[in-house]
Design a protein around this nucleic acid. Structure first.
Lengths: 113, 113
DNA sequence: ACAACATATGAATAGTTGTTCATATGTTCA
DNA sequence: TGAACATATGAACAACTATTCATATGTTGT
């Protein structure tokens, strides 16, 4: 760990540290955004914006293996971003959080779409 | 790729695909959020919310190696989330995008802080 | 009870990513 | 010009993650 020598350094370090969120909060935040960092999950959420879907529908919409989708839905479930409704053989997934749309919008704005 | 057999399947697949964003856009979106998915980068951005900082200040605030910070700042620069101002020996970094605050807020709301 | 189907899950693998170390580049000041 | 400092960067390594395959669990209709 290097030591800085320029003026006001220590003071600034302390003051900035003090204004930052709790360290655990920042780790949680990173974990939360990690869910959005994979294109398969983004595509699943994009599909679910249009309403609930069964696992095999999602698989076919994305043209991917059913087990891939199941694994990724588990990740989304773990972070409370989707909910499941079981009906017979099928599991219907839908979005569980209103923030998702807003977060998507802001991302799209940034990348300029 | 499994084939679903339940009613309305093909129609739903087509319709849903049609309502989804462009596939390239979804990949870009994932890449954008990937930047927020690491705790070191989250901590750097949290520090920068309070104003511009030199690399070595950030390193000391986070108590991490200077080179780690430099590498991560490069990632943030690549995605246009920070900008640099060079002054003598030092590089001062600051946030480059107003969306960052909003995205943070929404993440914090979701995790319930 | 059995066959067909839908979903979930464990293990293995390949690809990606964050950190560290060593070092290069560039700046300031004596 | 040389020493001290600030930052950037390449290579190596360890840790993590997404996907696939195989298979288990659970449901429906015959």
């Amino acid at each position: 760990m290097s030591e800085c020598t320029h003026a006001n350094h220590n003071e600034l370090v302390i003051k900035t540290r003090d204004g930052m969120p709790d360290i655990d909060t920042m780790f949680e935040l990173a974990d939360f955004f990690k869910v959005f960092s994979d294109s398969t999950r983004i595509r699943i959420m994009s599909a679910l914006f249009q309403g609930e879907l069964s696992v095999c529908c999602i698989a076919e919409i994305l043209n991917m293996e059913q087990s891939t989708i199941s694994h990724q839905l588990r990740v989304l479930r773990r972070e409370n971003l989707v909910k499941v409704r079981k009906d017979g053989k099928q599991s219907y997934y839908s979005l569980a959080d209103d923030h998702i749309r807003q977060i998507f919008e802001m991302g799209l704005e940034h990348i300029g779409e």
